[in-house]
Simulated assay, not measured.
Amino acid sequence: MIRITARARPALTLGLPTVWGGVAVVYKLGCPLAQQNGLGARIATSAVFFAVGTGLVLHIRWLLLRELRQVRRVADAAQRVLLRPPPARLDGLAVAAAQLSADRGADIGGDLYEAVATEHGVRVVMGDVRGHGLAALATAAAVLGSFREAVHDEPDLGGVLRRLERALDRHLRERARAEHPSTGLAPDSPVAEEFVTVLLLEVGRDGEVHALNCGHPWPYRVRADGVEPLAAEEHLPPLGPFPLPAGLDAVRCGPLLPDDLLVLYTDGAEDARDAHGDFFRLPVALAEAARDLPVSPQSVLRSVLATLRRHTRGRPTDDTALLVLRNERRYQSTWGARGQGADGRATECCEGEPVARPPSFEAVQSTGRRTLRDSARTARLRVLRSHPV
């Protein structure tokens, strides 16, 4: 395969059209056949100009394909930075996420998601920017950037949500100032109508789930006994048009038991229609994908996305994002009474069955110090016995 260096590309871009044009001019002015009016001469002249035209068209096509590949590389890099794949495991939770763009050939749209393990628990965000495609990329980046920093600093979800609101307001004002330097964020400006639906979740070490919902669909909790919405509380208004209320109390959504699945999604999943206008039934697809629990989040994603593509015949009308969490923890501190095992270690009860709890760092450190003291005492006794006074 021939590689073209960066210095040779400008010469190749300008040189090939010049060569084709020179061939046509030389043939027309310097070839005796081009001066004749016979049928053979006309056929030869037409063939020469047809070859020149074909060469120019193929060259232009090559240039456009090269630019398209470059744009796709930039879009892929932007996707990896903005919607980076979450780790396979986060503090005992298995995680998988995927995004399906409505723009053909684009891998990124107006949906956003992220999962981060913090000292407060695993915190997750799922959001949907008004509109789709590359136009919503900057807004999604502003919200995600603020979330990734706020989840480590704020002790509660209310503080995280207020940080997201301030970041979005600052981004919209800067965007309006760039588009309309003289007026700023006017009430009738298109930027003033921008909004973002946001769902914040926190899964604590005890498995308890707390949430704040700003106009976003509630996720589904998938268990062996069926699929149900995580909560049914009223939504807060989406971020952007209206200010947040003074009190932001997170909704307690119950525990996420071992092998339970939590499926977050954007409205593109349930608003997708088939050729007859029927909506996509996401709970049915989830029940089919998680028929035999336990299942991995990756298999649930593959099954649901394949069903969604078949439903829309590969032509979704809106961006769709899915994020699946599965609790793989085998002990929880609030599900039963504590006891003591035969080896002296603390045990905890999970649904009636005692499960050994891993020793803490302090216990391991204390055991190590005790072992060192015993070893030192034994060594001194050996010295005294071998050398009596």
Rank of each mutant, 00 (worst) to 15 (best):
H120D: 08
D274Q: 01
A141I: 04
H120F: 14
A75P: 10
V19W: 03
T45R: 14
A321H: 06
C31P: 04
W62P: 02
H276T: 10
D271K: 05
A41Y: 05
E353S: 15
P187R: 01
Q365A: 12
L261P: 06
A306H: 13
Y331Q: 01
V160M: 05
L244A: 01
E234S: 13
L100H: 03
Q332Y: 12
E119R: 14
R205V: 05
E270T: 15
D319S: 00
L262S: 04
V129N: 00
R166E: 13
A376Q: 10
D153V: 12
G247M: 07
Q99P: 07
D318G: 04
V198D: 05
Q332N: 01
V95H: 03
T197G: 00
A192P: 05
L168F: 05
R173A: 02
F242R: 10
R104A: 14
E362T: 01
F50Q: 06
V196C: 03
Y331A: 08
C31H: 13
A167P: 08
R162Q: 11
E288Y: 04
E270N: 12
A269N: 03
P297M: 07
L200D: 04
L144V: 09
R369Y: 11
D156Q: 13
E288C: 11
L230E: 01
R385L: 12
A96F: 00
C350H: 13
A135I: 11
G121T: 02
H210L: 12
L236C: 10
A231Q: 09
S386V: 08
A96G: 02
R148E: 08
R173D: 02
S333H: 13
F242S: 11
Y265E: 02
A138P: 08
L322T: 01
A178R: 15
D225G: 03
A115M: 01
G159Q: 03
G215V: 02
